[in-house]
Design a protein around this nucleic acid. Structure first.
Lengths: 234, 234
DNA sequence: TTTATATTTATTGTCGACAATTCTTGCTAA
DNA sequence: TTAGCAAGAATTGTCGACAATAAATATAAA
């Protein structure tokens, strides 16, 4: 998985390493969503002191992967449908704006790089059509490039440093390696087109629709699952 | 100042209290922006151990008031013009979306409350025209009510829990107790109108323009300051 | 049996000390 | 004089132990 936060250096301190391990464990569901976290137990398991564990927990809290209450303790964040939809609405706002700023602020070279990337994806796509690869890495790469292209540190930190951990968590736990590959590819193309024409307004609009489409796709999926469950129960 | 984060309980633990004190110190400039933080010194000054100080520092980092580098230390965040503009762009995206959601999700009672609040502000405004009061508390109250009205926990946490500390810091340090009172009041009225008509699209548009107007107001102010400085130097 | 209270247990918050790393100072050599 | 290196000082990271708070259990009263 190459989809690491591009703004972050490699871990140096031990609490950094533990943070990364815990992050993976939570995102991939090895630590159950909503479960309570026992500091003594975790510290023992990772063979570190409670202090450095708490340091790691603080970072997890920063990207909203756990929640802490004073004198009570930490819990892994819950994965609710409402939370997922809220997350996508937030993404729509932030990434939409990031896309507008990208259209204004990206260098010509950055734009060319992104166009090349898309062309390469097109080739891959022709080979093995609509498979996981594109949606998994390609999609993330595309969105990262746009976000970084905004050249707005505030937006970059919020989206890459915080929001995307949650996004990955939901994707893993709800098992949505989205089958929108083909349509998403076209949408990506149109967005890049708008950016290369320096049309911030259109770029934002397209990005927002792109994310809103994902959200609606999820809503439909959920509705179908519910219907299936209900017919199963009867 | 009643403009506390409405989602947060009163501090119980000592690191909570120190966090609040440091927060005020940073926001109001008692700790200089960009200055280095010495853990031993601060711990001594507040008469606490380094552990609980570090706990407080972690919370400050969470709302982006300080920045930490591994093995090097913490610095109070810098107050640059670019940072301020970036912040307002982010606000535009997030509060715009929050406003749209508020139009969809606020209860009739919440809307009525907000209308009453505005009517009261109108009275205050008639008495002491355009003074600090309205812009200081009234403005913050209004924005908070809209954000909470979104009923979107993700948005609420991001804006109230993180962004607004920085906003207050910039307002203090750059001394902008904005003189846009009258215009802002009208804009607020229009936004509430759109919300009460459940017109999410218009509500978002108006909120974005409202914040963008603030940003442009700041840009002008800065440009004037620069011009004044230059003519002074000659 | 159920509710309320008291006691015990476990967990989190706080502390001071040591280890690892970075910064500073002073020295040596070109 | 300046550049680079080495020893020392200071700062941050990590550790284990104790104190304060919350949860669990047992006991007593209604």
């Amino acid at each position: 998985m190459l989809l690491q936060n591009p703004t972050k250096k490699t871990a140096v301190t031990t609490s950094d390493k533990v943070f990364e391990q815990l992050q993976h464990a939570i995102v991939e569901g090895d630590m159950a969503a909503g479960s309570k976290i026992s500091e003594p137990e975790l510290a023992k398991r990772y063979e570190i002191s409670r202090s450095t564990l708490r340091e790691a927990l603080n970072r997890l809290e920063k990207c909203h992967l756990i929640e802490r209450k004073a004198n009570i303790g930490s819990r892994v964040v819950d994965c609710t449908i409402e939370g997922l939809l809220e997350l996508y609405i937030t993404r729509e706002a932030l990434e939409g704006m990031a896309c507008r700023q990208a259209a204004l602020n990206m260098t010509d070279k950055e734009i060319a790089d992104m166009q090349n990337m898309l062309a390469q994806h097109a080739g891959d796509k022709a080979l093995q059509d609509g498979v996981a690869y594109y949606q998994e890495e390609g999609d993330v790469d595309f969105h990262y490039k746009v976000i970084l292209g905004s050249h707005n540190q505030q937006l970059i930190n919020l989206i890459c440093g915080q929001l995307y951990h949650l996004v990955r968590m939901y994707r893993c736990q709800f098992g949505m390696h989205s089958p929108r590959a083909t349509r998403a590819f076209t949408e990506h193309s149109n967005i890049i087109q708008a950016i290369s024409e320096r049309d911030g307004e259109l770029a934002e609009l397209l990005m927002r629709r792109h994310i809103a489409a994902s959200r609606k796709n999820i809503e439909n999926k959920i509705a179908l699952q519910k219907a299936a469950q209900q017919s199963e129960e009867t």
